[in-house]
Write a protein that binds this DNA or RNA. Structure first.
Lengths: 322, 322
DNA sequence: CCAGTTATAGTCAAATGGATTATAACTGGA
DNA sequence: TCCAGTTATAATCCATTTGACTATAACTGG
């Protein structure tokens, strides 16, 4: 960064020695029996990951390789989430810089016989306050909200107090605002900032008395998951990615339940059906499913042709306001 | 992060030697006199960039440093675009891997006295087919469309022909479809794939006779710009980022012209005003502007409070359908 | 003073989207 | 066999949004 002269090329030559390690991290999602799940490895709650190496043809293929090797699970849909520089690692002899590239990937559970070293866990074990399918959960009403308000009011100056209350209110839909399921990351950051959650291996292991009951993850993996949930909740509204999580054929209610699992909130049934039908996202298989518990339901399959037809627009899924 | 046991860690230890270079690249945007512009450096059409180095506190601060150094321009709003692995560079002694992290940044032209080594160029010099403010431009009607159809029909098998025509039709709104201004990247990729554009320093310098008239850029920089335009065109519809490009106070028509410049299409005036007002994005300064050419217009300023109020929802800008 | 230009307000119909009701078709137990 | 419970499917209603248009106001320059 220190040199003479104009051009970028010269600067580049000057600092040519700086090399960093690159890690690829995957947030792999599946929906199993109406529960949205994340793929973890090892005993600890860890996302599949590995370094980007010379033998990898591309970033994505590197990621696929690591996930398949660590979990036995082939990946379908992949989307880049975010790239961030890790806090300085202390290398063997010198300061070591590292960056992580995180990805969102969608699959089906049955896709493969998973290796014994990995498993599926519900999102909501890590983010119990994100599941609003039965209204605001107790942990939010009884623990989170009072603690956050306490934290906000505990700030030194009035400006900070106002700002914290403001953020809490928007994040959780207080004071007449609406709950917005896409604010998963903002909520996590708020809770983290307030010291109400703690991650394994984080610097601050000051075993605080008043933590919100929730499963933690290694390093910053829970933050990556929060980013991925937010992205997915946003994406299902304008791209037909839900079908990556569905079996070959399904009933409309199964499809609805999957969307509800991801969004963490309930959807009005007739409206959901209307939207799916008028967008022609699916077509009937001609068969019906009997194990509905009531009247048999028609089975549908995804119309793959829509991927060519509407590249961006469409696939708006109605998520009721509250 | 490196230890023993449980799958991932062992693999990680095995390939621990792989290090790569990381480049930071900025697509810096300003709107000058109704033209959306990109900041370039040097004689060639190159985006500001530089390697991520040890002295950088974070990726973003590294990017800010390089842009400021190369152009004298301080950056305001920054957003990550995409991280990709470059094609293998051949290093001095061994194979050298490199990845690039690209960013979208918004500023105002007057922000600083720019250094002589850089300049602002209209987007539409690089993407003449993206400016639909006066309808579909001649270059699209007379050159692009026929060449693309020619290319599609020149495919070997029928399936490829159908697929190419399909993609062309959606990208350019043919056969009764609507023009979608957000498909900038898809359009560029299509044109690139068809061999109708060519970049400086790309492998394939087979000076083709029939290129579409447009300015090229160094390496894959034009692709980064296409990604950034698409992101920005999408973003202005749900986040109030336009105001990063506006002066302190402005008339509603100036605001509209700026949005139109970015979107590359015209907006219905009364509807635009209605939407801005009902969202309470702006407030009157109390003053009026005389140099409108007609009746004086009220001056407005951005209500910064909205950033706290509506973190995701809102700021939908109406972009007429056609 | 008049033609040209822009600002601002108001109207109207079509489309969208949320909520509700009604009826059909199955299961399992009384 | 009938009835309660459950789910599927169809249809309707109404408020809001949104695209398109019209009318009037206020300035400029010739």
């Amino acid at each position: 960064m220190d040199d003479q002269e104009t051009g970028a090329s010269k600067d580049r030559a000057a600092v040519t020695g700086d090399e960093v390690k690159v890690d690829l991290i995957a947030f792999v999602v599946a929906v199993n029996d109406g529960e949205p799940c994340v793929l973890t490895i090892g005993q600890a709650d860890t996302l599949p990951s590995g370094p980007f190496a010379l033998e990898h043809r591309s970033l994505q293929s590197g990621l696929r390789g690591w996930v398949e090797q660590q979990t036995g699970h082939p990946l379908g849909y992949i989307e880049q989430l975010y790239t961030f520089a890790d806090r300085d690692r202390v290398g063997a002899e010198r300061r070591q810089r590292a960056i992580s590239i995180s990805y969102l990937a969608l699959t089906r559970k049955e896709q493969a016989a998973s290796s014994p070293n990995c498993g599926w866990r519900s999102w909501y074990e890590y983010f119990p306050w994100e599941d609003h399918r039965s209204g605001a959960p107790p942990v939010e009403l009884n623990v989170l909200r009072p603690r956050l308000i306490e934290w906000a009011d505990g700030a030194g100056d009035a400006a900070t107090r106002r700002e914290r209350r403001q953020r809490t209110a928007t994040a959780f839909g207080l004071d007449g605002r609406h709950w917005n399921e896409e604010l998963t990351l903002q909520r996590y950051e708020l809770i983290y900032e307030a010291g109400l959650v703690q991650e394994a291996g984080s610097g601050r292991d000051t075993t605080r008395a008043s933590l919100v009951p929730s499963k933690s993850m290694v390093a910053d993996h829970r933050r990556i998951v929060a980013t991925g949930i937010a992205r997915l909740r946003s994406k299902i509204k304008y791209r037909p990615v839900v079908f990556e999580l569905m079996p070959q054929s399904f009933t409309l209610l199964q499809l609805q339940r999957t969307v509800e699992a991801l969004a963490g909130r309930l959807i009005n049934k007739p409206n959901f059906r209307r939207l799916i039908e008028q967008q022609e996202l699916v077509e009937e298989t001609g068969e019906t499913s009997v194990d509905t518990g009531g009247r048999p339901a028609r089975l549908y399959r995804f119309r793959h042709a829509v991927l060519d037809e509407t590249p961006i627009v469409g696939t708006k899924l109605p998520v009721a306001r509250g």
